[in-house]
Write a protein that binds this DNA or RNA. Sequence first.
DNA 1: GTCTATATAGAGATAGAC
DNA 2: GTCTATCTCTATATAGAC
Lengths: 187, 187
Amino acid sequence: MSDSTRDRIINVADALFYQKGFEHTSFSDIANSVGISKGNFYHHFKTKDEILNAVIDFRLFRTRELLNAWHTSEAEPDKRIQCFIKILITNRAKIKLYGCPVGTLTTELGKLSHPLLVDANKIFTLFKDWLASQFEELGKCKSESEALAMQLLARSQGSATIASAFGDEEFLYEEVESHVRWLNEIK
Amino acid sequence: MSDSTRDRIINVADALFYQKGFEHTSFSDIANSVGISKGNFYHHFKTKDEILNAVIDFRLFRTRELLNAWHTSEAEPDKRIQCFIKILITNRAKIKLYGCPVGTLTTELGKLSHPLLVDANKIFTLFKDWLASQFEELGKCKSESEALAMQLLARSQGSATIASAFGDEEFLYEEVESHVRWLNEIK
DNA sequence: GTCTATATAGAGATAGAC
DNA sequence: GTCTATCTCTATATAGAC
């Protein structure tokens, strides 16, 4: 991502939407954080939904990059799945404070009946399909792979929410250990 | 709960906070839904935080009642834990639409850095402590009971979030089945 | 206890100068 | 591309009549 004003806005909005939520983040918040005026802001994005749309696209892009990185760094499908499991530890500090960025955004947009909910959900689908294809490589049939991907997604999601609610970073380590054990049992 | 205007406000606010989120629910929304004027509304609650506080107290009260009901209806601790597991099915229609009422509220209040987050989290603690005491009755030691309660809380939470994100009611049935199997294995 | 009318602040959004 | 100034709408909140 380059350093244009537009990209700096997207980066700041991405962080603020995660930390404060979409609705609770105002144009002023973003403009102040970027260090530009509100008027300038509107030169780059005409509506709040436009910036949300850009943030979702950015997150989709980063997610694809992350999945590709895991795919190239690990040769075995079970090792790749472990990469997913361990993001709870990699991002533990932020998860403790703000929960899962994917789950909290889709939950909020759902309650707002926001038209871009559909696009935010694509981030979940990206993870789900990638996980399912790893389970298939492990030798599972298509329908079981899909089910296992959903299960793992749900487990990670729950771990993040509970760790955040109880402000418990240590819990994330226990959960990751438990998820890895689960993976070794089912594979 | 009686039928006074105050109680009707709490009931409506409880539902709207769940469906639309706390911040996205306005006084007008509540007043309109109750069928009173905004002016009358302020006779009963002076600030938005006051009504949130009343809603949280109401939810704490209902949760205690629910746990007591499970306690009296089921003699065995594992059957009581199953009651908790199966609320995902009991409330499946609403969970699909709005997620878990406890998790989504605490997540939202966390992002708002809201002072009443502490009180909202007490609902989680109520479930956690009750589950832990059931695991103790099953013969688990104190620290393991606590850990198992947190695990089950996380699992249910994740199932709700993913079912809601994917609009998948059927997934809740699969998850409940999986949680019951887990309970039978560990007990 | 309930209403109408109103005050005030902050949000999203625009116009136009530089 | 960036700024200041301004508009409009809606949300929280208050005052005071009935």
